[in-house]
Simulated assay, not measured.
Amino acid sequence: MKKMLCLILALPLMVSAQKNQSQLSKGNEILYTMPEESELHEGTWLQWPHEYQYGETFSNRLDDVWIAMTESLAADEKVHIIAYNEEEKEKIKEMLHEANVSLANVDFYIYPTDDFWVRDNGPIYVRDKTGKLIIEDWGFNGWGKKAEFTNCNAIPSKIARAQGKTLIDLNSVMVNEGGAIEIDGNGTLLATKSAILNANRNPGMSQGEAEAIFRKYLGATNFIWLNGKAGLEITDMHIDGFARFGNSSTLVTMSADDLADWQVPDNDIDKLYLAKNKSGKPYRIVKLPLTKNTVTTAYGKKLGYKGSYVNYYIGNKVVLVPNYQDSNDAVANAIIQKLYPAREVIGIDVRNLYANGGMIHCVTQQQPK
């Protein structure tokens, strides 16, 4: 499943975090906190698929997903679209125009990218002690050097420069994809060891060292570590495919049978259901189904595996939920709608996207207000 010194003029302040892991593990001070996804957004970031990595047929099959996300989000927040080049920008604008999508709340940034998984390679917005919003640039190495990553790894620093925001450079501190972690907005971090404490990302890093880094740069003080399963797919089992924080008191996941179908280890299932917040209180568990049937793409390819609804995205006024033209779409949408009564649930057909292993959360990244 399947991301310096103060410069003059419009350039942001870049703060180097180049310290060795032993130094970091000794520090307990929280410098930054990461807002929870459901907090009010200034906007959402999207990296539009293009033909320059995998070909035109590949990108053409995905355009409708990005058009639907843009249309659904743009009514109530900015949509920041990263286009590969000027030619791609004009192509995207024409597609949105033909779909009657207003560009009033849409802007474009021209940056070459390797792929479109902005959740994993994009900027992580955090607040410092004064409440100022800044960008953290964590290391991204193509999920353990399994894919091209150089262009995508440069995206956070380019966005910080364009927005004139302070950039915290963490490339030498930790490789960490956005889809590998879940934050409850109240000090708890949920993750799999397989996607972080892995020799292909952070060789030799201990759990304690990782926790010290997450405490300092994300404000996490309570940790729920699942083992996960490395090598199963490209992400080494990102958490956001099967478990999410619905809010500060709720964990959204699946039934034990569906988690087993997702190949989550048995002891991880037990630990997930028994998870507690930083105050020691159990989370309310909300269970979404998998699709009833294995997924077939819109172009007829049988994928041979079921689809997850957990990988949804919370916008300001909408919740974008992966849908698969499956009878369980309505079931999952209704459960999520009950969880977010003040937002409108919108199902997005992700069948073609899912052929590449990811869903809605994987291709979106929030910028808090």
Rank of each mutant, 00 (worst) to 15 (best):
K3H: 13
C6E: 08
L9M: 14
S22V: 14
N28R: 06
E29W: 11
I30K: 02
I30V: 15
E42H: 10
T44V: 15
P49H: 02
H50Y: 02
F58W: 10
T70G: 01
E71D: 15
D76T: 15
E77I: 03
K78N: 07
V79K: 00
E87Y: 11
K91C: 06
E94S: 13
L96W: 01
E98Q: 15
A99Q: 04
N105G: 13
V106N: 00
Y111T: 03
P112G: 09
P112Y: 12
P112K: 11
D115L: 02
W117T: 02
R119C: 03
D120G: 11
P123I: 02
D128R: 03
I135M: 07
I135T: 04
E136S: 13
D137K: 12
G142R: 06
N151F: 15
N153C: 10
N153R: 11
A154M: 13
P156R: 07
I159C: 03
A160S: 10
R161C: 07
G164A: 09
S172H: 11
S172Q: 12
M174C: 10
E177C: 09
I183V: 09
T188Y: 07
A195Q: 03
N198E: 01
E211T: 06
F214W: 15
F214D: 00
F214E: 01
A220M: 09
N222I: 12
G241E: 06
F242T: 06
F245N: 02
S249G: 14
V252P: 02
M254V: 07
S255L: 03
S255E: 06
D257W: 01
D258R: 01
D270L: 13
K276Q: 14
N277M: 12
R284Q: 14
T291V: 09
T291N: 06
L320C: 09
N323C: 13
N328S: 11
D329N: 03
L339P: 03
Y340S: 04
N352R: 04
M359T: 07
Q365A: 09
Q365W: 01
